[in-house]
Write a protein that binds this DNA or RNA. Structure first.
Lengths: 92, 92
DNA sequence: TTCTTGGTTATCATATATGATAACTCTAGT
DNA sequence: ACTAGAGTTATCATATATGATAACCAAGAA
């Protein structure tokens, strides 16, 4: 909640955003989604249009501990101009 | 269908399987799932047990053009001993 | 042949993701 | 103060993923 809010504000600083965008690390799912949209420089509404849905659903996807389907993840990524694949690494 | 069948037979050859397991390329979703289970050396039933579900559902997941949720993908990967993350690469 | 094992398919019930709409907050400008 | 833009939240309807069970196929071994 307040973490999201903080991130939101922080990312408004263009320099900070640039740095943030460089980090390609292992984030949780939501962070990965936010990062894609951030890099694309799109609003939720713009992503929604490209996904043929509504902005409220994008908000839900990005906030409410999401459990989206693979096709939804693909649509979102494509809307943000990304190709998506799974990365599996052996646990040990 | 027959592709799956072919793959199935081919992968019974241990040498071929070893080679197949080395390839970490951009597969479609289903191939990535099959590869994980193949590397783990588990049967559908074993994966099903670890995921607390039934083997028929695993088969459906691996065959019927799947659109699983993120949590299902995670469960499957964990059952096979893998950690999972998204890999997004910019389209151009 | 018969049995076992791994995988497939069909089906139904249930849980949950998604679509759609509306009302709301917050912030930045003007 | 007012407005506009971006995001949030609540809610309902509907589509679809998932769980569960049973019957089936194919291949290999005894």
């Amino acid at each position: 909640m307040s973490l999201q809010r903080l991130k939101q504000r922080v990312l408004k600083n263009p320099e900070v955003k640039a740095e943030y965008d460089k980090l390609e690390d292992e984030f949780n799912l939501i962070d990965q989604l936010l990062t894609m949209r951030s890099k694309a420089g799109l609003t939720q509404e713009q992503v929604a249009e490209r996904m043929q849905t509504n902005k409220s659903n994008i908000s839900r996807l990005e906030r409410g501990n999401a459990n989206p389907s693979w096709s939804t993840l693909l649509k979102y990524a494509h809307a943000c101009g990304f190709e998506l694949s799974l990365q599996a690494q052996k646990m040990h």
